[in-house]
């Protein structure tokens, strides 16, 4: 049984890492005015954040087309018997819906396709895809691999500190974090993805304090089986946090990864966060 693993670009898995596990990444779309780009393909993070800060118009994002999923599944069907397609929270994006439609579109032709709504995003989704790829390499069946996907998604957490809620608010993804709107003081909101939507977590008066709080949360959730420190525009800061949190990971390894354009559209410049998986108890 040959099983392929598919995810979408909001997993923000560093490309080399995705390639090493043979994970196929389907890009979402990001648009500045009339100019449309493929997340991470025709629009890389580097260029995106430069434009985001200069752009007069707020960029918009949209799910991959059903056709792009159909083509991906068909192509993988040539040398695989089954495809596991793990995606961004269906409460944040229609990506999962598009994948399901593509599966239905195949109508029994091609490989068996299983679409999973992980209710996660960023590397919390990324680790689920990687975990499934590892299980498949170790010979897991489709059903076992599905169980792995659900298990990791449930243990995973994506949280972070943003400079402003403006991007989430304008993009219509603010969710329960709207409780933090309206403050008269400058605050760094801390947010997490919970039950597939954005929730308020805490607030810090300064970035340093916020980063300390993030490290504190990671420490409380330790031991972790996987950890990625996520950033949008400050790699140096992410490296520092990674060095400080290495000891909480059972393998001692921390991945530093950049939020791609689509997720970055909602978090904005200066975001720092973490996507991790708690170790099994």
């Amino acid at each position: 049984m040959r099983i392929a693993v598919v995810t979408d670009s909001t997993a923000d898995i560093p490309p080399q890492l995705a390639a090493s596990y043979g994970i196929r990444v389907v890009p979402l779309n990001v648009r500045f005015g009339l100019d449309a780009y493929l997340d991470g393909v025709t629009m890389k993070a580097e260029e995106f954040y430069q434009r985001l800060e200069q752009a007069e118009e707020f960029p918009t994002t949209s799910q991959p087309s059903v056709v792009s999923f159909v083509e991906t599944y068909k192509e993988l069907g040539a040398d695989h018997d089954a495809v596991l397609s793990l995606h961004l929270s269906s409460k944040l994006s229609a990506t999962h819906t598009a994948a399901v439609q593509a599966r239905d579109e195949l109508g029994g032709e091609g490989p068996r396709v299983e679409v999973v709504d992980t209710l996660q995003a960023s590397m919390a989704l990324g680790w689920a895809a990687i975990g499934v790829a590892e299980a498949v390499q170790a010979g897991a069946s489709v059903d076992d691999a599905l169980e792995v996907a659900r298990d990791i998604s449930a243990r995973a957490r994506f949280l972070g500190l943003v400079e402003t809620l403006e991007y989430l608010y304008k993009g219509g993804r603010i969710g329960k974090a709207s409780l933090y709107l309206g403050s008269l003081l400058r605050l760094k909101p801390m947010l997490e993805l919970k039950d597939g939507i954005v929730h308020p977590l805490d607030r810090a008066r300064s970035k340093n304090k916020g980063i300390d709080k993030i490290k504190g949360i990671i420490a409380r959730d330790a031991p972790l089986s996987h950890l990625a420190i996520m950033y949008t525009t400050e790699p140096q800061l992410a490296e520092e946090v990674a060095a400080d949190t290495r000891r909480y990971v059972t393998t001692g390894e921390v991945t530093v990864a950049r939020q791609g354009p689509v997720v970055g559209t909602y978090l904005g410049p200066g975001m720092l966060g973490a996507g991790y998986v708690k170790a099994r108890e």
Binding site: G182, S183, L185
Partner: peptide, 10 residues
């Protein structure tokens, strides 16, 4: 007063 009222969380 406003700072307290608007401290968020309603």
């Amino acid at each position: 007063r406003q700072l307290f009222l608007n401290a968020g969380l309603g």
